[in-house]
Design a binder for these strands. Structure first.
Length: 420
RNA sequence: GGAGGGUUGGCAGAGAGGUUGAAUGCACCGCUUUCGAAAAGCGGAAUCUUCGAAAGAGGAUCACAGGUUCAAAUCCUGUACCCUCCGCCA
């Protein structure tokens, strides 16, 4: 959510930002509804004032005649108030619906572009493996090594179902534990977060109303979070934090649920796209400063790079172009891992900042050193998702006999150097 | 799932239709006193929002949403959450 004052005073900037993000929202209409809202509001507040005055006088000592007259006047005030309040309520509903459509403004450093195609590669790292044999994909490798069972996965869960088992299960645990140690050493407070979350908080992160199709729902009007970003942002909702406790640095583990409603034809098999997975997520709440946001954005991004580098997996970094960026983002990077069999980089995580777009919706504020209250800034970034990471890991480190060499940093967590 | 009790400011806790944004205590911030501190005394302090250049003047907020009333923290209804007991259960 942007500040309505900012929208009023920077109409052209907001229009331009929405255009870059290809968001169709009528800013002129919003401003005229806002004007109407303020007009009705001012009338309603005047009438309430009249009502308060009248009530006050009735509380005192009045003659019968004076009393009757005030009551008569109050009736008129009350009737008009009822009418205007109803009008105000309807106007606010429209106003809010439009406000939720207004996207966050992309940073100037964000490349222009229509879609994924125009995302900019900004960095590559690592040597893509050269095999002197025909490499297998992760599905074949993992089935052979009894690390995963997709047939029974779909039998039990349905489309996109999987079981991890044996060294597949052990390897996942090893990655979780390694990630906890690795990111934990970077001064994050680890959390295990609930995935079942009240609906309202999905509006805060920007997942609703936009992505409703992609979210599983319970019969109690709760939704299943597709990322720990949702519960962790909700964690401090409606709170005023102190200046000293910022920045908040959280590393949250949670199961993640995604319906993948718009992706039926994509990645039909294997562990790239599943309904249920697990993720460590980095999240920061910091002071309301663009410089701090940018600094932490780069840091969070570098954290995931370092983690991937420690595993020795080839990756690239991509700056998301304005047209492909989510509504709530100011700027976003994707980290993509090399998948040898597909001969493609595939997304493993993304790192984004929001300024106060999310915290305004969550009402997360802090008191600065002068005692003034501001909305905090928020940032979040993937630390590591499983099982998607396994795809690159087993494919890049496969050997001619179908066994998998385990990166050195994981060996002590897994208890072996090779899966065969 | 059943029965009962609760939810008031940073915390504790009054208030049971009328000038209550809310007593009192603790904590907090000034000032006085002191070499300094403690103690004591005096004073100040919630949040959101509208109009305004400002000074200031309105409006809203006692879990949340409705309702009754000229007037609701206070009465009624619904929802959420907390506590106690019973039942069930990792």
């Amino acid at each position: 959510m942007l500040d309505i004052k900012f929208i009023r005073e920077n109409k052209e900037i907001v229009k331009e930002g929405a255009k870059r993000k290809h968001v169709d929202v009528d800013i002129d209409e919003l401003i005229s509804i806002d004007q109407k809202r303020l007009e009705i509001l001012s009338r309603v507040e005047f009438l309430r004032g009249e009502q308060n005055k009248g009530s006050l006088s009735l509380g005192g000592t009045l003659t019968e005649a004076a009393r009757a007259q005030v009551l008569e006047e109050m009736k008129l005030v009350k009737d008009e108030l009822k009418e205007k309040e109803e009008e105000l309520r309807a106007t606010i509903v429209n106003w809010q619906a439009l406000m939720l459509k207004v996207p966050n403004m992309p940073d100037i450093s964000v490349p222009d572009g229509e879609s994924e195609e125009q995302n900019q590669e900004i960095k590559t790292w690592g040597e893509k493996p050269k095999f002197d044999f025909e490499p297998k994909d992760h599905i074949e490798l993992m089935i052979k090594l009894k690390m995963a069972d997709f047939e029974r996965g779909t039998k039990v869960h349905g489309f996109r179902g999987y079981f991890l088992m044996g060294d597949g299960a052990r390897l996942s645990m090893a990655i979780w534990n390694y990630a906890l140690d690795f990111f934990g050493a970077k001064n994050f407070n680890p959390f295990i977060a609930p995935a079942i979350v009240n609906k309202e908080y999905f509006i805060g992160t920007g997942h609703l109303p936009g992505d409703a199709e992609d979210i599983f729902q319970t019969q109690d009007d709760q939704y299943l979070a597709g990322t720990a970003e949702v519960p962790m942002m909700a964690y401090h909702s409606n709170e005023i934090l102190t200046n000293e406790e910022l920045p908040k640095r959280y590393l949250a583990f949670s199961p993640c649920y995604r319906r993948e409603a718009g992706a039926h034809g994509k990645d039909m098999k294997g562990l790239i796209r599943v309904h249920e997975f697990y993720k460590w997520e980095q999240l920061i709440l910091c002071r309301a400063s663009h410089e701090e946001s940018v600094k932490y954005h780069e840091e969070l991004n570098r954290n995931i790079e370092e983690f991937i580098e420690s595993l020795g997996l080839p990756y690239r970094q991509v700056a998301i172009c304005a047209g492909d960026m989510k509504n709530a983002h100011v700027k976003s990077y994707d980290t993509e891992l090399w998948v040898p069999k597909e001969e493609k980089y595939r997304e493993i995580g993304s790192t984004s900042y929001y300024h106060d777009f999310q915290t305004r919706r969550f009402n997360i504020r802090y008191r600065d050193e002068e005692g003034k209250i501001h909305y905090t800034h928020s940032l979040n970034a993937t630390a590591i998702p499983t099982p998607r990471i396994l795809v690159s890991l087993v494919e890049n480190f496969q050997q001619a006999d179908g066994s998998i060499k385990i990166p050195e940093v994981l060996q002590k967590y897994l208890g072996k150097e090779i899966i065969s």
